[in-house]
Design a binder for these strands. Structure first.
Lengths: 356, 356
DNA sequence: CTGAAAGCGCTTACAG
DNA sequence: CTGAAAGCGCTTACAG
């Protein structure tokens, strides 16, 4: 007999399945079956057990169930941060769908730190999660081998390709910034700058950067290293700082592509401080299309990341994998370019070179 | 013998404590003791067991541990939404501190729905959480009795007072808006409007509304019902809609107090559309001080909610409660008024009445 | 369709 | 300080 951690005098004994069985006058095994495979139990018996469940307001102990069945009905997720709306929304959708499917979500955040991510995954695994949702596709090698070895189903989210064999659910970040950059080129921009959070080994931002570079290359332009400012965390203040640094070195820039909306919001504000109004003097674009993106002045041109869709699909796919199904290696959603007020025609060529 | 859910051929048998005991040449009981109460084991034996743990890279099965010890080291939390940065930040801090204390966080969101909140709590309880973190202090009665009956420690967050006996950790929402309203009165404002999300039984917003009403009353002013617009969810679009409705009915309003930053952001934008610029024509304030609040144009006057502090304190207090300590019934943090650009002197009395 | 029994991987009094 | 044994609350072959 053990002492519960918090054995207040007021605590009433919780009914267990044995109690249900006793009240219903059946064996423990039968009571269990009514709960798990009701069809194989005769209707009368089933009714009796269900009545007992009601009467005792029995509620199963999922830990015990997990221990004996090998299934916990818990799914673990590790996201970089909840501070970014794009992850908050995705997690919310994930959790909703998961709970509809009878699963509970065990959530961690890694603060964009791979070691922390690994630690969280270890903890999740110790808790016996049935499946895992991770963000992106760049992990410590140890993490991958750990998951493989335990055979726990795992999906990777927000990215396009699965480098580690985990089925991926997300968007093509590279294609999205490629299209966005094309759009800016069409508007006449030739002097580009980039504010990106690739400093952290962030595969999404890296893909976004690659898309920009590629679009420029296809157009015969090169993006020199001085035109890329890498920041640590994708927060507004860093977008601000990023823009100052960028324009200090490269005052001729007419288009700034940011790998995140928060960075773009900061960049727009910083540009204004410098007397450069978007889109008149400077075109600035974001990525994510978080709620605020459409509400800033000017509203942000950006890429819509379908976070809720990703979250829901991650839940569906993961549960399918848990049930033993094979998953498509890539599930790609559309990432629409949202052209709004923060980008526009490039300033007339002569005027801008005269300025500089 | 059971079949694991995902028994791929590649899966390697995970070492269990029995294996550790065998390798270390001790009994299962001793192996367990080394892990849980190392001091009562002799140094040599301890070393041997630890070596075996290393050699087998043993990792405990927390479900089994939970079942036999009655402690899961899992804490459950239910927040209204992760979409609001204030909750995202709080949850992040909560999880950080919890994991430092050896606990894992099981997270749910209720979408501001009390029935959903109850369902989540039930699920969390079935999973054997050692403690619970809830938001606010307005629950379905069934939720309160359920938690009481199980004796699971529970803290309430973001509010000031504990109506249900759950220790509360938060801020005094009423006092904050009282002070904010005083400030607006000092600026000469007499015609007030409020956009609030009290439509949902949201005790924080109700307290905020109460603070406004009280400050006005102490000043001899009454806030008529037509001057309060209640919206469903605290999102930017609703702030926008709220302001239109408010000014339609009460065009003489010079100060709009919003119960959330998102609402204030929408209100500022909507006012601008109407040709009313903040703070020149209209003072608008928010609540929360999320990241974006300081970055809008004009930056938002608001109240800083110390979400991270609340999250950390919730973790600390809850773990203390789990360990059997008594908790202070209220833990209050300061909620500073942040005076920024969106509020200013009331437009000259005569001018405004002439307009109307 | 139902029951008796073993077992999931641990912890913890109880003896020694 | 250490071990043998019971037990946590379930599930699931195995018989019947």
């Amino acid at each position: 007999m053990k002492a519960r951690a918090f054995d207040k005098a007021t605590t009433i004994e919780r009914a267990k399945l044995t109690d249900v069985a006793r009240v219903a006058n059946v064996s423990l095994a039968t009571a269990s079956r009514v709960l798990n495979q009701p069809v194989i139990v005769s209707p009368e018996v089933r009714e009796r057990v269900l009545a007992a469940v009601q009467a005792l307001s029995y509620t199963p102990d999922r830990m015990a169930r997990a221990l004996s069945s090998g299934r916990s009905f818990i799914v673990g997720a590790v996201v970089p941060t909840l501070g970014n709306a794009i992850f908050a929304d995705g997690v919310e959708a994930l959790q909703d769908r998961l709970s509809a499917l009878g699963y509970t979500l065990l959530l961690s955040n890694s603060q964009y730190d791979q070691q922390k991510e690994l630690d969280q995954v270890k903890a999740l695994l110790e808790h016996g999660v049935d499946g895992l949702v991770l963000v992106g596709d760049t992990f410590k090698p140890e993490l991958v081998s750990l998951i493989r070895q335990r055979g726990t189903p795992c999906v990777s989210t927000y990215g396009a390709e699965s480098r580690n064999g985990f089925p991926s659910i997300g968007i093509d970040n590279r294609a999205a910034t490629y299209a966005l950059t094309r759009h800016l080129l069409d508007l006449g921009h030739r002097q580009f700058g980039v504010i990106s959070n690739t400093a952290l080994s962030n595969d999404r931002s890296q893909a976004r950067l690659a898309g920009i570079v590629e679009a420029l290359a296809d157009f015969g332009l090169t993006l020199e290293a001085e035109r890329i400012v890498e920041i640590e965390k994708p927060i507004i203040a860093n977008g601000r700082a990023g823009l100052y640094r960028l324009l200090e070195i490269q005052p001729d820039i007419s288009a700034v592509v940011c790998t995140t909306d928060a960075l773009a919001v900061g960049a727009v504000a910083a540009a204004r401080n410098l007397g450069r109004e978007a889109p008149r003097d400077l075109s600035i674009s974001g990525f994510d299309d978080v709620e605020i993106a459409a509400e800033t002045d000017p509203p942000l041109t950006t890429v819509r990341v379908p976070a809720s869709q990703i979250g829901r699909a991650a839940a569906d796919n993961l549960v399918r994998a848990i049930q033993g199904e094979e998953l498509p290696i890539n599930t790609l959603f559309e990432a629409r370019i949202m052209i709004r007020g923060s980008t526009g025609d490039a300033p007339a060529r002569l005027a801008s070179s005269a300025d500089a």
